[in-house]
Design a protein around this nucleic acid. Structure first.
Length: 488
RNA sequence: GGCGCUGUCGUCUAGCGGUUUAGGACAUCGCCCUUUCACGGCGAAGGUCGCGGGUUCGAAUCCCGCCAGCGUCACCA
């Protein structure tokens, strides 16, 4: 029996969660579910300067919204905590000391100023900069005297010559010459472990079996492998997934507009659509385009992740969102649309049954034209509020002749007292009137639509009329007739 | 600059030496449906598979070189 797979998503709470991070989290999640393993969330919050409570909340909220539930981590608990790196710092000291004692790491007394001067010099001379290993050659005596003097120091890992190969599940074998790695810092002068050191210890202690992360970490991997070996930890499998880029093919950033997961939520992207879209960025399964989470968990396979970076293009996301919106039940659509109706002030905080019913009907009528939930208010206003004006372009076309006013009024008398006021009964009335007037149905339908909705486009006219209601239709038709007369 | 990764329609991708006149999806355009807008259906356009060599009877698929893009080179994670 193989060891249970354990993967982790380890964001640092230095900013909101963006689509790239979400995609990394998703692939980890899918891998865990696919292999029957555990998905762990660890917060890398050791950079107190840049970490914030707010970013933390955004990350948790974003993951939860996407449905990427973590098996272990903040608010979920687990037996390999703590899950905040800031609370794990004591765990590192033993390992630091061991490396130093075993001579695999050494104290370096070079100051930041010295080093940056050295680097500046190298850059000025067009050489590449690499730490020279000056302090590696300190004699025991020199070390002792610096220690006595209480000089500040960092701990550097003593890289030994050779080649380190990363056996990557998506990229295959990638080898690095150790000579190109300088003696990197593993403990900062304040005693805190650096990222490279901390991840290794954390991942090892948490029993992480597969490290799935962005390709930007690939070049750090040989250093980490060296550390795993030095510490005697079992190596995890690595999988470096391609980066997500902006349309200009540079790494996606705020510059490219909306990249925050929560901003898509606010625009009314459904989490299922976001998940589906993200999954298809770097992964695919034949010609199939639409996958729900269950299918994804079932079919996901890290070996099928492709190596090339993908451009984040929301066209397809919008289409997918439309697909998912159309697949919603009336109740689900109402629940999802409610915040938008509320925010637009179209319905009260605690709507009565009649309003709820009407809202559901309205949403049903616009369901197939939605791409974002945020489009809802604009598409349904006229069901709730009498039009305040008419789209000029449409008025120009349909509201220019006095006959139109006559016809609108004739329709009013047709409609008066109609009972029940149903689409299938309204339709013949309108069509018959058009016939009687010897005009095509459209010639009447268009002005009526404009009169009732103020728009040139709307859901089917007869269904729209039914929902607006007989009385209100009559009022609107009369107002429009009046408007036309004044205009001509 | 060193190192590393990547390179198939505008975008996401299928393709793993022959059944490929390179397939699908989004976007675009056209037609149909139709009271409008959508939805849906049908169809079109769009790729000299980064470029150049080679291997092979045969290459998008294998090899080499080049070019381009990206990533990474911190006491940041």
């Amino acid at each position: 029996m193989e060891r249970e797979t354990r993967v982790r998503f380890a964001p640092s709470p230095t900013g909101y969660i963006h689509v790239g991070g979400a995609r990394t989290a998703l692939f980890n999640y899918l891998f865990a579910r696919n292999t029957g393993g555990k998905f762990i969330l660890r917060i890398e919050d050791t950079d107190l300067e840049r970490s914030s409570e707010e970013a933390m909340r955004d990350i948790l909220e974003g993951l939860r919204w996407l449905g990427l539930a973590w098996d272990e981590g903040p608010q979920a608990g687990g037996s390999s905590g703590p899950y905040f790196q800031a609370e794990r710092i004591d765990l590192y000291t033993g390992y630091m000391n061991r490396l130093e004692r075993d001579g695999m790491a050494y104290r370096c007394y070079c100051t930041i100023d010295e080093l940056s001067a050295e680097r500046a010099r190298a850059v000025a001379e067009g050489r590449e900069y690499k730490y020279g290993g000056k302090c590696r050659c300190l004699t025991p005596g020199e070390r002792e005297s610096r220690l006595q003097a209480g000089a500040a120091s960092v701990l550097r890992f003593a890289v030994t010559p050779g080649t380190t190969v990363v056996d990557d599940m998506v990229r295959g074998q990638v080898s690095f010459d150790n000579a190109l790695l300088d003696d990197f810092v593993i403990v900062k002068s304040d005693g805190m472990a650096t990222y490279n050191f901390a991840v290794v210890v954390d991942d090892a202690l948490m029993g992480i079996t597969h490290v799935i992360r962005g390709e930007d970490h690939l070049s750090n991997t040989p250093r980490q492998i060296l550390l795993y070996k030095a510490l005697g930890f079992e190596l995890p499998r690595f999988a470096h997934i391609p980066l997500i880029m902006g349309p200009d093919r540079t790494r996606l950033s705020k510059r490219h507009g909306a990249t925050a997961v929560t901003s898509y939520r606010d625009q009314g992207i459904l989490p299922q659509a976001m998940i589906n879209f993200l999954a298809l960025l770097g992964w695919g399964y034949g010609d199939k385009q639409l996958f729900d989470m269950t299918e994804l968990c079932d079919l996901f396979n890290i070996e099928r992740v492709n190596k090339n970076p993908a451009v984040f293009d929301t066209d397809k996301l919008e289409w997918m969102n439309g697909q998912y919106i159309r697949a919603m039940t009336s109740d689900d659509l109402f629940q999802a649309g409610l915040p938008y109706l509320l925010q637009a002030g179209l319905i009260p905080e605690e709507p009565d049954d009649e309003t709820v019913l009407k809202s559901k009907e309205a949403l049903k009528l616009v369901q197939e034209r939605l791409r974002y939930l945020s489009e809802i208010p604009d598409l349904v206003v006229f069901f709730f509020i009498r039009p305040q004006g008419y789209e000029p372009e449409a008025a120009e076309k349909w509201f220019t002749r006095s006959q139109t006013a006559d016809r609108l009024e004739k329709l009013v008398s047709e409609l008066q007292g109609m009972e029940p006021f149903k689409a299938e009964m309204i339709e013949p009335k309108v069509r018959n009137l058009a016939a009687a007037e010897e005009i095509k149905a459209g010639e009447l339908i268009h002005p009526v639509r404009l009169a009732l909705t103020g728009r040139k486009a709307s859901p089917g006219l007869f269904e729209t009329m039914e929902l607006i209601g007989c009385e209100e239709c009559i009022i609107r038709l009369r107002k429009a007739a009046e408007f036309v007369r004044e205009r001509v």
